[in-house]
Design a protein around this nucleic acid. Sequence first.
DNA 1: GGTGCTATCTTGACACTGTCTAGTCAATGG
DNA 2: CCATTGACTAGACAGTGTCAAGATAGCACC
Lengths: 215, 215
Amino acid sequence: MTRWGIATTSSANPARSYHHGDLRQALIDSAAQLVHEKGPAGFSLREVARRAGVSHAAPAHHFGSTKGLLTAVASAGFEHLTEAMRAAVVGVEDPAERLRRLGRAYVGVSIRFPGHVALMFRSDIVDHDDEFFAACGLEAYAELDQTLEMVREAYNPDLDVQLAGKFVWASVQGLVDLSADFGPLDEKREVATHDLGALIDGFVVLMLDGFRQRT
Amino acid sequence: MTRWGIATTSSANPARSYHHGDLRQALIDSAAQLVHEKGPAGFSLREVARRAGVSHAAPAHHFGSTKGLLTAVASAGFEHLTEAMRAAVVGVEDPAERLRRLGRAYVGVSIRFPGHVALMFRSDIVDHDDEFFAACGLEAYAELDQTLEMVREAYNPDLDVQLAGKFVWASVQGLVDLSADFGPLDEKREVATHDLGALIDGFVVLMLDGFRQRT
DNA sequence: GGTGCTATCTTGACACTGTCTAGTCAATGG
DNA sequence: CCATTGACTAGACAGTGTCAAGATAGCACC
């Protein structure tokens, strides 16, 4: 699997080795693995410590509380999402195709790492006011914003990019949200995970038609 | 506040009084109140029992586990949502206006009862396979479906109502999801709760343009 | 080289959680 | 009237997050 734990929140010196070597990063990795396996609900600070081979109170020293550690994991999740989105559109010029690929990348990440995506939007257990986390979120959003700017230029100079951005993001996140947990929207499982991509394509067509200038 | 606890899951006789009178309903009410105050995260089975004035193991007898009780609360939430959506469009003929009102109703509920809405889509703590819960979800969705059928007739006979339904629901739920927890999408709080209605209006315009038949 | 000093981590405790088991007690059916 | 069943209580168990106090290692400084 892709390497998750990438970044830290604020402290600068990651390689300094005291007792453990690099406990902070090790904890993030263990936590990410645990979130990946059991989702945010199955997460436990003590279990993370156990996996990292340290005592149960060790994480508190680095992250303050559970929220701190989860925030770090969520930040790494956003970084991965940004990376995936960026890679999906590199070299692609057509705005419509870019939008489609962004959507598919988003859905792809949410399918491969449902635990992380679920975590990222849980404000009750993740500190959304954290500086680094907010920056990571903005970075991902900027990727979409850029493409929407291209849509505006190509399709409709009057397009409200801000509104469109929120609209697209909300649509995709809503789809992920509703289908990831097999919500009441698709009680018959008609929307299986492998159909999500196709669904996204349909969404994009509808969105683009909505964005187009009316003749 | 509106009375939440409305329905039970499967048992038929609600008014039968044994020791307590109607513990099942009392527990749902207490649980709903607790969810309303502290959200799904702050929920505790023991706290609910405490508020209802019974022992900590009493709820298990009626609901099996925490999940069972939360599922009942979530079902009541959906019933309330359905009611709100239905009331919002009664007597309104114009499809566009209906869609707009449905969206505003949805957002209105999510603002007034954020805890419930957050709960309803948490598949980890709510049993989405529960029969009654699924039925409640479908009922709400049917309300949207009906209006979209009207949109199809009025705007575009080729409209894929199924796709459009998922699209609309995902968009609105995504918006609620992203802004209710003040996600990274609006780190500057530019999307305050009172702006959500206006945002929904913008969404609806974009959606309708997407649904329209191209000339 | 020795002496603080601070960051790192451990150990133990506390209050709390959900669930399981056994027991109590009321209400109903025969 | 009595037995059975449903409703609920009381206690225990394993697990949780967080706090307080202690141990230990690395570093700066004299």
